[in-house]
């Protein structure tokens, strides 16, 4: 029984990583329809931004975290404002945008290696955050707990923002019918900028977690993002709750299934389930038919 509980707690940690990445992607993709694979690049950049703030500039962790979130959000918005708009304004399709995004990811991941070397940059000032706490016999590090708490707060804020504020409702309206919102005078450009900023701020949180936990490193984001994208599709595009349920499933599956399934089959099995899922229900768990 103890092992089930321990695996469950680890599952919660991993689920939170997918939850945040998937929520970020969902906000961007659901509204803009852009297959923003450079989400993985923002994930990586966030870790290095935090590293620069904490280690090079010596700022305390809380200030660094807040600054790094803001910087990540700005970076995300800039990617949209510069690269993606340049692509789209020249008659580029979404496929072209996807390729450009892939190109950007190559630039980010390798640019970082050129600047910082391929070695992970470990944090020296965060020793106390690696301390291990026990939750009913399941070990959890302070960083993990911190990520879970910040993550829950962020997701709640996101939910309230999307459903209870005027800006959120505007985003929803624009995602369902962009033409109509254009007519009622909602600026799509503004809405898209906001979505990129929110999405990038969300993906920054697991980025920080990875950096603090095992050192800032490049190239770790792609697979996480692809799995998160899968969660978004499984949950149903534009359904935040659907993406959350699917993310929880993926995070839990990776940890709980270890009891029966050899680790090297896990990812393939998840993809296999995904294939069956989109065959049976192409709109996802909570998606409405267009």
């Amino acid at each position: 029984m103890e092992i089930l509980w321990q695996l469950f707690i680890q599952g919660v940690v991993l689920s939170m990583v997918y939850l945040l990445i998937a929520s970020g992607f969902s906000v961007i993709y659901g509204t803009t329809g852009h297959f923003h694979i450079s989400h993985a690049g923002v994930f990586t950049l966030a870790g290095y931004v935090l590293y620069l703030l904490m280690e090079s500039m010596g700022l305390p962790i809380w200030i660094s975290l807040i600054l790094a979130i803001v910087i990540s959000a700005i970076l995300g918005a800039l990617i949209y404002l510069t690269l993606y708009r340049a692509v789209l304004s020249r008659n580029g399709t979404h496929l072209v945008l996807f390729i450009a995004s892939l190109g950007l990811l190559t630039v980010i991941d390798n640019g970082i290696v050129a600047i910082f070397s391929p070695d992970p940059q470990t944090f020296t000032t965060s020793v106390e955050f690696n301390k291990v706490l026990m939750i009913l016999g399941a070990p959890v590090t302070v960083i993990q707990l911190g990520m879970i708490i910040i993550g829950i707060v962020a997701l709640l804020l996101l939910y309230v923002f999307m459903n209870r504020t005027k800006a959120g409702r505007m985003i929803k309206a624009a995602s369902v019918n962009p033409d109509l919102s254009q007519i009622v005078g909602i600026s799509l450009k503004k809405i898209h900028v906001i979505c990129y900023a929110i999405g990038s701020a969300l993906v920054a949180i697991p980025g920080f977690y990875f950096a603090l936990d095992t050192g800032a490193n490049s190239g770790k984001g792609v697979e996480l993002v692809i799995l998160a994208v899968m969660a978004v599709i499984m949950g149903g595009i534009r359904s935040l709750v659907g993406a959350w349920i699917a993310s929880l499933f993926i995070g839990m599956f990776y940890n709980m299934s270890i009891l029966w399934i050899p680790p090297h089959w896990q990812t393939s099995i998840i993809f296999f389930l995904f294939l069956i899922m989109i065959m049976v229900r192409p709109t996802g768990l909570f998606g409405q038919r267009a």
């Binding site: 695996l7 680890q10 940690v13 936990d213 095992t214 770790k220 990776y254 940890n255 270890i258």
Partner: peptide
């Protein structure tokens, strides 16, 4: 980077 599941097992 995350080996906690196999290690727990």
């Amino acid at each position: 980077t995350n080996f906690r599941a196999i290690l727990t097992k």
